[in-house]
Amino acid sequence: MKNARIWFEKRDECKYISHLDLNRVMMRAIQKSKLPVWYTEGFNIHPYITFALPLSLGFVGVREPMDCRIEDDNFDFMTIPELLNPCLPNGIKVISANEPKYKAGDISSAEYKISLVSNYISNEELYSSFTELLKKDEILIEKKTKKGVKTVNLKEQILSFDISNSDKICLTLVLPCGSTNNVNPNLLIKAYENAMQNEVFAEIIRTDIFVEGGSRFE
């Protein structure tokens, strides 16, 4: 038995399914593909799969990890995409698989690319007002946690950012994530909307995941 980390994209139609639904979609795909994944041996037998870092509903993910165990030690990881892809719906595509280098708990940050559109103001205005917000020392937003609502300063949480205005506004953000501290990029969008009192349409893509020290999660 060996561990496998399967990398996949989640976009288009599948951008709109929840993490729980994704879990079911993947289990069915594995069942249909007959990939020799280890099944749990409890009362409710199912393929044993875990996701290192769940993706919010509505986000595109281009390099999402799913972990499982392959029963056959000699199994060729290269065949996993061709086995699983015909069993998956539009919007989920398996890219590659490898033996995990890091543990899920090592994850500490993720990179997001966000394109912004507004129905109310021009790209120029959107660009300058968003840049203005990012320059501030304090970006306060109320965050709902299990313990209740608390106010956090997003500015302290942003590990790096970049904003550009070519034909559309594109924001690149690196934010902490993982089991200890998780910051959803939507909070920043909401902070902007609160500050400007108008709505923006944000398309958020999670582009990469990193471990402590900045290496790529592999």
Binding site: D12, E13, Y16, I17, S18, G58, P89
Partner: peptide, 20 residues
């Protein structure tokens, strides 16, 4: 696409399922 994130369970309104 513009309204999907404003509603519950938007996966119901997009199609693209396996075998569609």
């Amino acid at each position: 696409e513009k309204i999907l994130l404003k509603v519950q369970k938007p996966g119901r309104y997009v199609g693209g399922e396996l075998n569609a």
